[in-house]
Structure formats: structure tokens, C-alpha cells
Amino acid sequence: MAFVLTFLLRRLAQGVIVVFLVSFLIFTLLRLIPGDPVRMMLGTNVSEVTLERKAKELGLRDPIPVQYANYLYNFIQGDLGQSYLLGESGGAAPTAQNKQGGQISAEAEIARDAESKTTRASVFKLIGDGLPYTLQLAGLGLLFTFMVALPLGISGGLKPEKWQARLAFFTGSLLISLPNFWLALVLILLISSNANLLPSIGYKGFAYTLLPAIVLAVELVPVIIRGLSVSIASSTQQGFVDGGIVRGLPWSRIVWRHVIRNASIPMLNMFGVQIGGLLLGGVFVTEYIFDYPGVGKLTIQAVLQRDFPIIQGVAILAAGVLVLVNILVDLVATYIDRRLKY
């Protein structure tokens, strides 16, 4: 038990460092690159004076370290700041209005913000609103992924010279060659508009999650297949497989109890390092194309509009989630293979 505690503490400490590093890098990057968010907020036809006043008000003219310190101070108190552009009751956040597919134009929003300093939406709330949708999409996407990738990957790894391996190989090669945005377009065209089988753009119910989830799964399946077949195949090369045969264990038992158990370690590691990033990236693009009201769409729009607080908030959140996923993965891996403890 002492081990688990030490492990958790050590990893959490490392994780906190990583999250801070991410927040700092993103923060600095956002402020170093050209492009003035205030100009974006207020439009092109406001005077320099107004512009400067607004910038000062937002703290954008302070030195970067000061800005970062202020940000951190608020962050520790649980405040991720407010969106520069989105209002409390509108914008790209998935409000009732937005769920019906309508979108308020950014110009209108900026205009409103400029004339009256209405309450701007808190980043925390914006992310909170989008998160359930994103989780639903990611969960469904992973479910589809495993349904396809597990049987293909495992059988491909167990029979490296047979048709199973070839099937896994060609499926993987084909799927990894499909750009997600193009696939999304074609699916919208074929399944949504031509055949009218599934709805796509926007969100008006669970069915709207299906097509994006399929696109997401197509992106993940080849990665999992490849990882699985390699780790299963290398697991069957280990001494205990031959050892099991000469010791009289039934083949099925060797495979299900031992081969898969040992193959799960590299799989878990891959999941921690790669899938987290892939899944996030995939979710973002998919949401953007399908106009799906999750965190991904929020982020991409924020980036395009230079809405710094949202970008920072999402980056920190993403880093935090990935750090936690990795800790969990390592904990499970250590439970399965005790050697990792040493």
C-alpha cells in the first residue's frame, strides 16, 4: 500500500509540473504570436484609444510574467477567466438556441459586447456545458473502435502468417489512409443527405452522435489494430508460451490467461501516450466538421477568434486529463505486471 501512495504522490507531483508547463507554454505562445485579440473583439472601426482602454482593462498590456501570475492566481482559486467574446447566454456555447442548429454570428456578438460590457461567459461554464457532449462522442467512438479493433487485432496477432493477419494489416492500412475531414464529408453526403439514414450537422438528439463517432472510430481503429497485433504477436514469442505447451496447459488457456494478459501492458502504455492525444485531436476536428456542440468546437472557434481564456482553459484541462489517464494506466499496468514496480 505504501507503494501505491508513493507512486501516486510522485506521479501527481510530476503531473502538476507538466500541467503548469503546458499552461505556461500556451500562455506565452498566445501572447507572443501576432494578432491582437482586442482588435478581434472590437472590430476594425474603433479608435486606438478605446482599443487601448479595453486592452488595459483586460490586463493585456501588463508584462507577460505578470499576466501569467494573475492567471495562475485565479486558476488556483478555480477561476479560469472569462471568454473575451462569448456572452453568458449566447455564442457558440451549446445553449438551447444553438442546439437547434442556429448560430449567432460572431460580428453580432462582438457588437453587443462592445457597446455594453455585458457579462461575458465564464470559461469554466463554457467548458462544463460542452463536456457532456464531448464525453458522449468520445465514449461512443471508443466503443465502436473496440468493437472493430479488438477482434481484428487479437486474431491478427495470434496468427501472424495467416489470413487474419493480412486482414488486420489491410484494414489498418486502408483506414489509416482516410483523412477524417474528407470521410466526414462523404458520410454526410451519402448517409445524411442522400440516403437520409442518420442526421448529422449540429445536435438535436443522440442520433447526432453516431456519424461523428464513426468518423472518430475510423481514426482510432488502425492505431489499435496495429498496437494490438504487434503486442499479441510479441507476447506469443515469450518463453511462457512454449513453457505452457510443454507443461501441458491447454492452448486456449495459454492465450486467454497469459498471452493477452502480457500483451495488455504495451497496449496500456500505448493507450496512455498515444490514444489520449489522438482521441482529443480527433474529437476536436470531428466536432468542428459536424458542428457538434462540444468542447472541441468551442476550442477551434476560440482559436480562430483568438479567444485566449478559452484556449488556455481547454489546454490545461486536456493536459490534466491526459496526466490523470497516464497515472491510471501506469497504476493498472503495475497491478498486472508487478515487475514494473521495481
Binding site: Q14, V18, V19, L21, V22, L25, I26, L29, V273, G276, G277, L280, G281, F284, V285, T299, I300, V303, I311, V314, A315, A318, A319, L322, V323
Partner: peptide, 11 residues
């Protein structure tokens, strides 16, 4: 670590 936890697309 830090860089891998920011999705490429955002960066």
C-alpha cells in the same frame, strides 16, 4: 510530456 498533452490541432 507537456507537449504531448496539447493536441496538435490546437497548437
Amino acid at each position: 510530456d507537456a507537449q504531448l498533452s496539447v493536441p496538435l490541432i490546437v497548437l
